[in-house]
Amino acid sequence: MSSGLVAETTADSLVPNGEPILRAARVGRAFRGLQALADYELDLRQGEILGVIGPNGAGKSTLFNVITGFLRPTSGRITFHGREIVGLPPDKIAALGIARTFQNIRLFAGMSVLDNVRAAQGMRGGAGFWETIISAPSFLRKERAMEERAMDHLAALGLADLHGAAATSLPYGFQRKLEIARALATEPTVLLLDEPAAGMNAQETADLTQLIRDLHARFGLTVVVVEHDMSLIMRLCQRIQVLNYGRVIASGTPAEIRADPRVIEAYLGTDETVNDGLQTQDAGRQVPGESL
């Protein structure tokens, strides 16, 4: 599929109509009395790009941690293609096709750009344990194929020329892209992006928005993106969920979200919450309607 075609379609015109593949029902996660996520509901449809927004501490990262099996929900069910995934170890969930990036970059620090991506290919498609140990003839062929595939994923993010560099020597924006390349290397159907534009300027964010759109089309991905940057969310997402205090307070198209008084209240606070002092900490916060 050409990227030009995708670029021309505006987010609002794409109504998600695929099959629901990732479902969450009444999912909750409590940390010693603090309800980080409560009664969370999700019907993620095949091929859609869903945005999840909300003030800091609203439960967005907890949501990703619960979906990927890094945290176990304290209540509720999560199914992926109809299969219950609560309680599966993170590597099994990743192998089923759910990949993520991290808000705070977590590359494999001591390794090269290429090896970061190779590591994420897991043992799938590569030589097996005993095959590797005894260096069976099939082993070299498989390893070469894996390396080529890793290079393809680097090329998709424009990082192919940097494959030999140490991962942590890359500029910040490139490290973020490498995280996406690494997530793609797990060959996911669902990609969870945790604040991919954090620390980027307006131009870099615009480029990243286009890049995510291209990857979405090229790899046939379903994407969930958590982001504070409203320009990225509003341009990219067909549907948005707004979280506050662990609960979904609003859900709809970008146009609906922009006009929703509950969202504006969650971001700016009513007089009451401002007086609580709970909502005034986040100086860089953008109101959804503000940037577009």
């Binding site: 170890p89 993170p90 590597d91 494999f108 590591a119």
Partner: peptide, 19 residues
């Protein structure tokens, strides 16, 4: 490569599908 990745960061390695 998977072994080195795990030594670098067990959490990230697991989330990248490494057993």
């Amino acid at each position: 490569v998977s072994m080195r990745a795990t030594a670098e960061n067990v959490t990230a390695a697991q989330l990248m599908g490494i057993n």
